[in-house]
Simulated assay, not measured.
Amino acid sequence: MRRFMFLLIVLFAVSGCVKDTAAYLDASKAAMNAPTHKEAVAQYESGVTKSVHSHYYYEGLGDIHYAYGYYGEAVNDYTRALRNDGRPEYNLKRGRAYMKLSFFRDAIIDFTSVIDLAGSKMPVAYVERAKAYAAKGDYKEAMDDLDKAVSKGGESAEFLIAMGELYFKMGEYGNAKAYVQRALMKDGESSELYLLRGKIFYKSKDANQSIADLKKAIELDRSNLEAKRMLAWIYATNPISGYRNGAEALNLAKSLFNMNQDVQCIEVLAAAYAELGDFDNAVRTLEEGIRLSDDLVQQEDFRFDIKNYKKGEPLRIW
């Protein structure tokens, strides 16, 4: 009888856990349809039970921050999730957020934790650590990790994407595109893949194909901030007039800025204003960027652009 009662208690606990998981994750995904980060967080918090002891609660918040490009806040909430439950999935998510912040050493530590805890079950951690090594310029370590990833998980789409990214960083665009093509055969609905191929085409001076791929990336994932930012940048700054579209650049840039007031979004917004001949707003936008940025090099870049805008000269960059 005692054993029966114990099993009942366990079953109720597990069913409640599954229900809580679904509730938080469903609420998080639904909130990501909100137009701004602030509205998404408010919608999520009004739809779930806030609990400082629930790792699911913090995971949902972290996912929202990540989707809207608030990577520092994502790191904070994934850390809170880890304090409540040290599952490797949270290290993986936090590592990806660190990557977006260019904190590559911290990302490597998180991905290594995943490998130590569940490397055989989560070969994607080797792929992610390879990306971090590649970002640091350590291509040998990156290749070693990719060899381990393929030996444990086969040629997954994640592995092929990582190979494409590695060759892209090395400037071998032909090899990069070949791996992306193979990855697309496995996952033709990946926004990340179309973004990467768009970057490859642009580096190869094929703006037409780049624009097509970036549009596809956004169609597949409207929260793909990097694809929106790059497309707006091309529309605002490409040297070939046939590829520029100031009005569309401004629409995209304003959409980005509403989602995330990051200084990179400010730079794109200023370039869009300049492309339309609105140099006063371009200057004011970059002056605000200087005030918000704590990066001295970026501040100096903004001052250089301001000088050009004051002379009525828009940016022209490949």
Results as ranks from 00 to 15, higher is better:
residue 263 V to Y: 07
residue 156 S to W: 00
residue 267 E to S: 10
residue 71 Y to F: 15
residue 299 Q to P: 02
residue 94 R to V: 06
residue 150 V to L: 06
residue 238 N to S: 14
residue 92 L to P: 01
residue 47 G to N: 15
residue 71 Y to L: 04
residue 202 Y to I: 12
residue 275 E to Y: 05
residue 244 R to K: 15
residue 254 K to H: 08
residue 21 T to Q: 13
residue 126 Y to V: 06
residue 266 I to R: 03
residue 262 D to I: 04
residue 160 L to V: 04
residue 256 L to H: 09
residue 251 N to R: 14
residue 242 G to V: 09
residue 172 E to C: 01
residue 49 T to R: 14
residue 53 H to C: 00
residue 4 F to C: 03
residue 302 F to R: 01
residue 120 S to I: 05
residue 177 K to T: 08
residue 289 G to I: 07
residue 263 V to E: 06
residue 191 S to D: 07
residue 126 Y to G: 03
residue 168 F to L: 11
residue 182 R to S: 14
residue 304 F to G: 05
residue 287 E to M: 06
residue 199 K to G: 06
residue 264 Q to I: 07
residue 158 E to T: 09
residue 311 K to W: 06
residue 157 A to N: 13
residue 97 A to P: 04
residue 235 Y to F: 15
residue 304 F to A: 13
residue 14 V to T: 14
residue 285 T to G: 07
residue 257 F to H: 15
residue 130 A to F: 03
residue 137 G to M: 13
residue 228 K to S: 12
residue 24 Y to G: 01
residue 38 K to R: 13
residue 62 G to H: 07
residue 275 E to G: 13
residue 27 A to T: 06
residue 15 S to P: 00
residue 125 A to Q: 02
residue 18 V to S: 05
residue 248 E to K: 15
residue 71 Y to N: 08
residue 39 E to T: 11
residue 261 Q to R: 14
residue 201 F to N: 10
residue 162 A to L: 08
residue 248 E to P: 00
residue 296 L to G: 05
residue 175 N to R: 03
residue 158 E to V: 00
residue 157 A to V: 14
residue 306 I to M: 05
residue 294 D to S: 12
residue 109 I to T: 10
residue 122 M to S: 11
residue 150 V to Q: 07
residue 266 I to Y: 02
residue 75 V to E: 02
residue 86 G to V: 05
residue 287 E to R: 13
residue 171 G to H: 07
residue 66 Y to W: 13
residue 44 Y to F: 15
residue 102 S to C: 08
residue 106 D to S: 12
residue 145 D to P: 01
residue 46 S to F: 05
residue 243 Y to E: 02
residue 26 D to E: 12
residue 313 E to G: 08
residue 176 A to V: 09
residue 218 I to L: 10
residue 195 L to Y: 15
residue 209 Q to D: 12
residue 93 K to P: 03
residue 285 T to V: 09
residue 36 T to K: 12
residue 151 S to Y: 06
residue 246 G to Q: 00
residue 245 N to G: 08
residue 77 D to S: 11
residue 109 I to R: 13
residue 181 Q to A: 11
residue 73 E to T: 07
residue 163 M to A: 02
residue 78 Y to Q: 03
residue 273 Y to Q: 04
residue 72 G to K: 11
residue 188 G to P: 04
residue 260 N to R: 08
residue 90 Y to H: 12
residue 179 Y to Q: 08
residue 303 R to L: 12
residue 171 G to W: 11
residue 83 R to S: 14
residue 273 Y to V: 06
residue 296 L to P: 04
